[in-house]
Lab assay of single mutants.
Amino acid sequence: KKIKIKIKVYNPETKEVLELEIEVSEEEAEELAKKLAEELEKKGYKIEEVEI
């Protein structure tokens, strides 16, 4: 079964909002969402919402 992940991120420095969407297997979904959120935060983005 495929799971659709939508991530909306906001960069306070540039006032930019990015929306990302990807489909992955159920097993990958939670781990991938967690890794993406961590990487984006390292780059200065503030995570507003992660929906699985």
Rank of each mutant, 00 (worst) to 15 (best):
E28L: 13
I52C: 14
I52W: 06
L20I: 14
E13K: 09
E51K: 06
E31L: 11
L18E: 05
K35V: 12
E27A: 15
K4V: 03
P12F: 07
V9L: 12
E21V: 14
K4F: 11
E48H: 04
K34R: 09
K46T: 08
N11P: 03
E41N: 10
L36C: 06
E51M: 11
K1M: 08
E41K: 10
P12C: 15
I3C: 15
V50D: 01
E21C: 14
E27G: 10
K6M: 05
E21T: 11
E31A: 10
T14C: 06
Y10I: 11
E31T: 13
V9T: 07
E26S: 12
K15H: 12
A29H: 07
I5D: 00
K35M: 07
I52A: 02
V50I: 08
S25E: 15
K6V: 10
S25Q: 15
A33F: 07
L20S: 03
E16I: 09
I3M: 15
E39I: 06
V50W: 06
L36N: 01
S25P: 08
A37F: 08
E39W: 06
L36V: 10
L40M: 07
A33V: 06
K34F: 01
E21Q: 12
V50N: 03
I3Y: 15
V9C: 05
E30P: 08
I3P: 04
E49G: 07
E41T: 10
K1F: 11
K4E: 03
K46M: 10
G44H: 01
E21K: 09
E13N: 10
K1H: 13
V24H: 03
E48Q: 04
E38D: 09
P12L: 15
I52R: 01
E13S: 13
E48A: 03
S25T: 09
K1P: 08
K46L: 15
L20V: 13
K34D: 05
I22K: 06
A29P: 04
K6H: 13
K46V: 10
I5N: 00
K46C: 15
E16N: 07
V50M: 08
K46A: 08
V24Q: 02
E23K: 05
E49C: 13
E26W: 07
I3G: 06
I7V: 06
I5W: 02
K6P: 00
Y10E: 03
V9I: 07
L36K: 03
E31Q: 06
N11W: 07
A29N: 02
A37T: 13
I5F: 05
A33D: 02
L40F: 07
E19P: 02
K2C: 15
K15A: 09
I47R: 01
I7W: 09
T14H: 04
L18Q: 03
A37W: 09
I52D: 01
T14P: 01
T14K: 04
S25H: 14
V9Q: 01
E49M: 13
E51T: 12
V24R: 02
V9S: 12
K2R: 13
S25V: 15
G44K: 00
E39Q: 09
E13G: 09
E19C: 14
I52V: 07
Y45M: 04
E23P: 05
T14E: 03
L18V: 04
L32S: 11
Y10S: 14
V17K: 12
K4D: 01
K34S: 04
K46P: 01
A29Y: 03
S25C: 15
K46R: 02
A37P: 03
K6S: 07
N11E: 03
K34E: 06
K1Q: 14
K15P: 02
E27V: 05
E48K: 07
G44L: 01
A37N: 02
L40S: 01
K42P: 00
E39H: 05
E51L: 09
V17S: 11
L32I: 14
L40D: 00
K6I: 08
K15T: 13
K42L: 07
L32P: 01
V24A: 07
K34C: 14
I47P: 02
E27I: 11
E38L: 11
E49N: 08
E28G: 10
P12W: 14
E38Q: 11
T14W: 03
A29D: 01
Y45I: 02
K42G: 11
K4M: 08
I3R: 12
I3D: 03
A37G: 06
L20T: 04
E26N: 06
Y45K: 00
K4L: 09
E49V: 08
E19I: 15
A37M: 14
K8R: 15
L36S: 02
Y45C: 13
K43V: 06
V17I: 13
E19V: 10
K2T: 14
E41I: 14
I47T: 02
E38F: 12
L40T: 01
E48Y: 11
I5K: 00
E26V: 03
A33E: 03
I5T: 00
T14D: 06
E13C: 09
K15N: 13
K6Q: 05
K46Y: 10
I47V: 10
P12T: 08
K43F: 05
N11S: 15
E51I: 14
E13R: 05
I52M: 07
K43S: 06
E51S: 09
L40C: 09
E16R: 10
E16K: 07
E39M: 14
E38R: 08
E19N: 10
K8M: 04
E30D: 05
A37Y: 02
E41C: 11
I3W: 14
E27K: 07
K43N: 04
L18Y: 13
E28N: 09
E21Y: 05
I47C: 03
V9R: 01
K46H: 09
Y45Q: 01
